[in-house]
Design a protein around this nucleic acid. Structure first.
Lengths: 147, 147
DNA sequence: GTTGCATAGCTTAATATTAAGCTATATTGT
DNA sequence: ACAATATAGCTTAATATTAAGCTATGCAAC
């Protein structure tokens, strides 16, 4: 096999392992969302609000990488369950600020704790140094796109 | 911060970087599917057939992690575009074997080459040793689920 | 053989998602 | 002030996806 072939082979191999790891870890972590009946997007929205405070829909959309139209629906559904509420910004009336309600805060606090525990369990396959190393390598890969 | 807190902090950090890397790399790689107008699932099906040979729908479903009902639709759409064909197995008539057509083979050969090139480009952020290391760490993480 | 269980693929209904375009609001340039 | 432009969120139509259940086929036990 020529050098180019080796490079390709190695890249494909690494890529496959990266994707399998990400997918297998997330799919196990997301199991904890079944009981509270949250979709992954709903969890993403609640978690963003929980850690960043109130946000407008566009910011939420860009945070969880979904379209603004989709966020409208996700927030609608969370609002129906009384987990968040919308409030029109009086300075710029185009904006809706989304707030966690009290029960929304309670729910995400509990669910996030469970997700966190699941992630710790998953990551326990690697020791400290390995996790540090994996983090660095992933960071290098992810940064590529910031061009 | 207590030991448990540190462990959690580190795990969350590593997890986040892993997910960001996976998502940022895939989203860039998948851009090459826009021009041939293939969905990610369609690409997954074609690629499975290209590398594994003819498969029945259930095997395809488990390979690309989609429901069997969904695969029925994905194959329907590929069949409409004459990229694959279904053939009833005469030994066990419950099975449909899915074959790439000639134009399907041509298309996936070309598209896979492009995807491969995109992956090589992405992975070029890491040198040989780093890729090897990343692969090993990911493998360790992914294996957790095989219990 | 017939009866009952298992399995492959299909259908249906519900939900999620996106892209494109719409409305309302704000900003900027003249 | 007014026109043009930009932006936030919403709507609509098309597509994707899943879960649950259905049909047809095969297999195994009796």
């Amino acid at each position: 096999m020529n050098p180019a072939g080796n490079e390709t082979y190695r890249a494909m191999n690494t890529y496959t392992k990266l994707m399998r790891a990400a997918e297998s870890v997330t799919s196990r972590v997301h199991r904890v969302l079944a009981e509270p009946k949250l979709t992954i997007s709903q969890f993403g929205v609640l978690e963003a609000l929980y850690h960043k405070g109130p946000l407008c829909q566009r910011d939420i959309a860009s945070k969880i990488l979904k379209s603004t139209g989709n966020i409208t629906l996700v927030i609608d559904n969370l609002e129906k369950q009384n987990l968040v509420r919308r409030e029109r910004d009086n300075k710029d009336r185009r904006y809706l600020t989304i707030y966690l309600t009290e029960s929304g805060t309670d729910l995400i606090a509990k669910v996030f704790t469970d997700v966190e525990a699941a992630i710790v369990t998953e990551m326990a396959s690697l020791n400290d140094n390995e996790q540090e190393l994996l983090g660095q390598l992933c960071k290098k890969l992810g940064m590529k796109g910031v061009s």
